[in-house]
């Protein structure tokens, strides 16, 4: 039974695309058949983060409008063959997508893949609405920062009102993925703590991804971090989040940066994320 996951946040720049690529890759590395779909029509970037930017021929809009077959638009990852990408159009705008067209493509993807990861655009407009519309569950990406938490709260409200599942009175799971988390700064009271965010948003926690230079490095190279540097704390956080999506019970531990100054002072060992 395939699962459609929307990766969303409301606010931009919190890590939706990075998380979509990393969770998608981690699920594929766990042997699942995965497609990551870029819904950010007009401002596509998932292709770049996944290192497939030179290979885009057709895109989501071409398929919605019937100019290309789905199979022609899917780009298979060169590193893991169970991972595919459906890119967004760079030249159209979000009005080129229709609910009927997106629904048809999601149905077609359900036949081919175990996981369909929908990378939502920022905002609450049409693109974001269509990305969540046919989802079975949501991963809400939040930074421990006031504006991100507020926007996540808004998006959670929309997930409960505007998805097909919610409208039909079915269960709609929402998971929180806290990204760019800095345990040391949270401990010093400079940053919202995990529990602060959980108390405010009141949805279950899927994982905590540490703020990390490894993430920038991976996107520079166009390789999801779970593939590029699987032992890094951020990659481990994504890998474990993916395993939780697959139903495993793994305790969530606050990440500690192995290279951090304070950790070295305290003599802590490798990160646990």
């Amino acid at each position: 039974m395939s699962k459609v996951v929307v990766v969303t946040s409301g606010k931009g720049g919190v890590g939706k695309t990075t998380s979509s690529a990393s969770l998608g890759a981690a699920l594929a590395q766990a042997g699942q058949n995965v497609v990551v779909v870029d819904f950010d029509v007009g401002l596509r970037n998932l292709d770049l983060v996944m290192g497939a930017e030179r290979r885009v021929v057709f895109d989501l809009v071409n398929v919605v409008q019937g100019d290309a077959k789905l199979a022609q638009a899917l780009i298979r990852d060169k590193r893991i063959d169970t991972l595919s990408l459906l890119p967004a159009s760079q030249t159209r705008d979000k009005d080129a997508l229709t609910e009927e067209g997106v629904g048809r493509i999601i149905e077609e993807l359900r036949e081919k893949f175990d996981w369909i990861i929908c990378d939502s655009p920022a905002g609450i407009e049409k693109g974001a609405m269509l990305a969540m519309r046919f989802a079975d569950l949501a991963v809400v990406i939040t930074n421990p920062e006031v504006s991100s938490v507020r926007d996540s709260d808004r998006i959670i409200g929309m997930l409960d009102a505007k998805t097909l599942r919610s409208e039909n009175g079915e269960k709609f799971e929402k998971h929180l993925l806290l990204t760019r988390y800095n345990t040391a700064r949270a401990a010093r009271g400079e940053m919202l703590k995990v529990d602060d965010v959980l108390e405010i948003l009141a949805i279950p926690l899927l994982g905590i991804v540490p703020e990390s230079a490894d993430i920038l490095n991976a996107s520079n190279l166009g390789c999801p971090i779970t593939l590029h540097d699987p032992a890094s704390p951020a990659a481990r956080a994504y890998t474990e989040a993916a395993r939780r999506l697959l139903g495993e019970k793994i305790d969530i531990v606050e990440p500690t940066e192995a290279r951090g100054f304070f950790n070295r002072l305290l003599g802590r060992k490798a990160a646990v994320a």
Binding site: V57, N62, D67, S89
Partner: peptide
């Protein structure tokens, strides 16, 4: 990253207005 962006953007800028060349 710099090289990847240069290649990508040179193609994207050249394609403005004829986006669906491949199609």
């Amino acid at each position: 990253a710099r090289e990847r962006l240069q290649v990508l953007l040179s193609h994207e800028r050249a394609l403005t207005g004829r986006a669906d060349l491949a199609a």
